[in-house]
């Protein structure tokens, strides 16, 4: 029971952070969905894994808010790939999110008696 609750908490926590992480990765270069998931896993040393379904939901929301735009590229003969591109409004939103994240993480570190690095 405790394990189930812990994994649910982890999932909720991840979902909250995934938006920030996806935007950050997209600020470096245009990426497609699978690539974003792979980079999240790689760069976190396997600590941050996400189901594609959850990621796409976040990406759809960001597209609707016009922070991201999409374009498709032909891969091979038949397949296409949808790339996500971070727009200027998305960059502003990302910098706001990073500031918020810094503030919250400072606050949490203070509460948990942890030294900030």
């Amino acid at each position: 029971m405790v394990n189930v609750m812990a994994s649910q908490n982890q999932e909720n926590f991840k979902r909250g952070c995934a938006e920030l992480i996806a935007l950050y990765l997209l600020s470096k270069e245009d990426l497609y969905g699978y690539q974003i998931c792979q980079l999240m896993e790689e760069k976190s040393g396997g600590r941050f894994t996400m189901l594609e379904g959850s990621l796409y939901l976040i990406l759809y929301k960001l597209v609707e808010l016009e922070y991201l735009t999409t374009y498709t590229k032909l891969v091979g003969k038949r397949r296409t790939r949808k790339y996500y591109h971070l727009e200027e409004s998305g960059r502003k939103y990302l910098s706001e999110m990073i500031n918020e994240y810094d503030e919250i993480s400072k606050g949490i570190c203070l509460i948990l008696d942890r030294e900030e690095k």
Binding site: Y32, Y34, E52, Y56, Y60, R79, T80, R81
Partner: peptide, 14 residues
């Protein structure tokens, strides 16, 4: 269609 098309891309990439 949109969701399935995105998942299709990811599945084939994987």
């Amino acid at each position: 269609n949109r969701i399935v098309s995105d998942i299709r891309e990811s599945v084939y990439d994987f």
